[in-house]
Amino acid sequence: MSGLLVLAQIVPRNRAGHQTCVQRNGFCPRWIVDNIGNYKEPFLRHVELTVLAVAFGFAIAFALALVAHRRRWLVGPITAVTGILYTLPSLAVFFLLQPITGRGVTTALIALTAYTLLILFRNVTLGLDNVPAEIKDAARGQGFSDRQLLWRVELPLALPEIIAGLRIAATTTVGLATLAFLAGAGGLGEPLFDGGEGINFQSNVVVAGGLCVLLAIALDLLLLGVQRAASPWQRARG
């Protein structure tokens, strides 16, 4: 809706008869400053879509990876299924889900979550596989049970790969969520594409596109910070 609101604010021609910056659909810093509040709701919705999709995706992929860690034969089938979900373009999935889940945030979240599964599953599995066998042996020798080994040795050591997966998933989802408006879920795609009317207004493109880039970078740095804070031994090693 906000895209339409933005369009509704187009100012009439000025008295000289020249078109104003907004009428030319140009890049208008003053208009942007005056209307910056219009971006708040799409931006917050964009954050919501991204964070929830990555969180749901991580919960599912993490559980799958732990199951497949014990039963190795599951890695192939899970990779194949999540691989298909990853290959299907989210835009197509938005429309394919519509007969089943209708239009709205749920539909967008299902499609975005499905897309993150392969990235997250692959990286958690890779991280667990990369833990050196000697370290696991040493932990077992100290009397660690399977569960203790997993949570106190393997997962902390797999953290760099796990966070790397989360970073890729988060930045990718920020980009894909710009299409969520086509599923009726709003987000920054709404101003970016003028609510599906096409790309019209340069000011919208710069602000909404810029907010997407900033959001992607912010989430990336946040996750990097989490990794630094959670694995101090990495820093010690340099």
């Binding site: 659909n25 890729i168 930045t171 990718t172 920020v174 980009g175 894909l176 710009t178 299409l179 795609g189 970016l192 594409f193 790309i199 019209n200 207004f201 340069q202 493109v205 710069v206 909404a208 596109g209 997407c212 880039v213 992607a216 970078i217 990336d220």
Partner: peptide, 19 residues
């Protein structure tokens, strides 16, 4: 690879189209 991930392809398309 990092910039490619951070800048959404849709934003690039919108930018090229509008400018």
């Amino acid at each position: 690879s990092n910039i490619g991930r951070a800048v959404p392809s849709l934003a690039i398309i919108a930018f090229f189209f509008s400018f």
